[in-house]
Design a binder for these strands. Sequence first.
DNA 1: ATGGCGGCTCGCAGCCGA
Length: 255
Amino acid sequence: MKLSTWNVNSLKVRLPHLLDWLALNQPDVVCLQETKLEDANFPRAAIEAAGYQVAFSGQKTYNGVAILSREPLHDVSAGIPGWDDAQQRVIAATVNGVRIVCVYVPNGQSPDSDKYQYKLAWLRSLTAYLEAALLQYPSLAVLGDYNIAPTDRDVYDAEDWGGGILVSQAERAAFEALLALGLRDSFSLFEQRSPVFTWWDYRMAAFRRNRGLRIDHILVSPTLATACLNWAVDKAPRKLERPSDHAPVLAAFTV
DNA sequence: ATGGCGGCTCGCAGCCGA
């Protein structure tokens, strides 16, 4: 079973890239973030024609998440139950007995902003949600744009980036709290010869210079961690005309 | 040097992302 996540930064703009990528890579599950589409405008027909069922939760202009799956989606749930949020950032579904949670963690803007406090509160709520989910689902995968670079190795130049968002102590502590639940970062299950990134700024030729961050993650329950065959970031779509600033991330499992 | 790029909106400039 091949699971993947991709922040497409507007599904309207990136739909052709997505359809090409599906045909080429044949993932079983794709979690999308930043679809930026109201549900009425979601390109359901085009995605179903590509052979995928889809569940989505979106809004205009910002945010928006979706799960695509070649196998049926069961028990779809949008948002974090019991936690009111005007922003559409979470959707979950069960596929072949694997609970899939697609997350778009808030950006945080800057450490002195209200958006940063919202990000930390949001992560606390997510942690409680996943703690309960782990009890219910032995096979659980949490895929998405976490907007956190867990270590300095996940930043092209930690000093140049500074102590701002995506790398702050509080954000990294929130990421560690997810691992403390028993989740494993599937990236860390495999040796990497050199730093690996999943996002590169559109500006300053950051992709060409490989000045990126690793902020898109696939976290998995212990059961899935033992079944994980590989982890990879696919940089090919980032090289296309009019790319998303994120590249898709994939992990394959023996389930 | 705090910009830069790109997507969005009852747009023609400003917000936001990361």
